[in-house]
Design a protein around this nucleic acid. Structure first.
Lengths: 165, 165
DNA sequence: ATTACTGCAAAGGCTTTGCACGGGT
DNA sequence: ACCCGTGCAAAGCCTTTGCAGTAAT
């Protein structure tokens, strides 16, 4: 669907900046930060302001056209892929990779619902969402990029499924 | 164990401020923020600086005496409970509650390891940690406190296990 | 013609850091 | 006596906001 139409359908004005930002985000596989998007888009859309990138991303999120990913580090990353899927986080670099849809679905389908109910009962709470993140690194691991968004190296468990915070 | 001894064992100098901060954190069930700890501890330890709270918490984390919880919102929360356990996050208020140890363990034990292996294979990655968070609210829900650390109200799924970012 | 969006710059929240002093070892 | 930890203030990073101008509807 063309961005023009898509925006209209979501009550968003269609501006050069928004189109450029959205297209770039949509095309990206790397869950870019606002800063990264800004750097990439400012070339094809000059005079672009970082504030506009933030404002646009907020508008897109609100309209349901993208998601803000706030885990992993100080700076938020954005994702225009709306199908439910899990993320693999590289704690060293801050990178985020998608877990293929089918695997994501199977993983989520096998969360122990009965135990979640137990938690609800025991704590007197209502669980309305469960978030599951995988932390790891590509097998061919490079040293940390040491970018501002990198995190400290994790404790490195014996194998898989060490718990978390 | 006395804080004095504990600190010595971990190569930390034992100062009034550190003891006060650590004891307060240890006694707290609420996973306080640095700011909250500061407000609580400054009474019994005057002249205390917020920077010292941050520095101390970092030292404690590094020494393995507490954990920094960075999910949920802009501001970090800290936890001196080191036994593996899950957290229930209230997205409205930023509050964090512990999931009882036995339930946490059972939940984690039932994560589908075979699928995690599949992910490793398909993506060519090494998963060294999995993080699982429950998002919800106390059954007797109060309206959001609207504190700086609160987050936007979530989409509210039909029931449980809506996926996540 | 309206009014939402943009750009700029300034402010905001949380956290870290530089530096001189004081307290722990 | 050494030097790490403290306090203060300033800076840092990411993000939001105020305002006047511009462009989309």
């Amino acid at each position: 669907m063309g961005a023009r139409r898509l925006f209209a359908d979501h009550g968003l004005r269609c501006t050069r900046q928004r189109v450029a930002i959205y297209e770039r985000l949509k095309a990206s596989m790397s869950h870019p930060t606002a800063e990264e998007l800004f750097e990439q888009v400012r070339g094809e859309c000059d005079g672009l302001s970082l504030a506009t990138v933030y404002n646009t991303l907020e508008a897109l999120c609100e309209a349901g056209l993208c998601r803000k990913l706030t885990f992993n580090c100080g700076c938020a990353r954005y994702d225009a892929e709306l199908e439910p899927h899990l993320h693999l986080l590289n704690d060293d670099t801050g990178e985020i990779h998608d877990v293929p849809r089918d695997l994501s679905e199977r993983l989520l389908a096998r969360l122990p619902e009965d135990l979640l109910r137990d938690v609800e009962e025991r704590l007197g709470v209502r669980i309305d969402r469960v978030s599951l993140h995988l932390h790891g690194r590509l097998a061919a691991a490079r040293p940390p990029t040491n970018g501002r968004c990198g995190a400290a190296p994790p404790p490195l468990a014996g194998h898989a499924s060490a718990v978390e915070s």
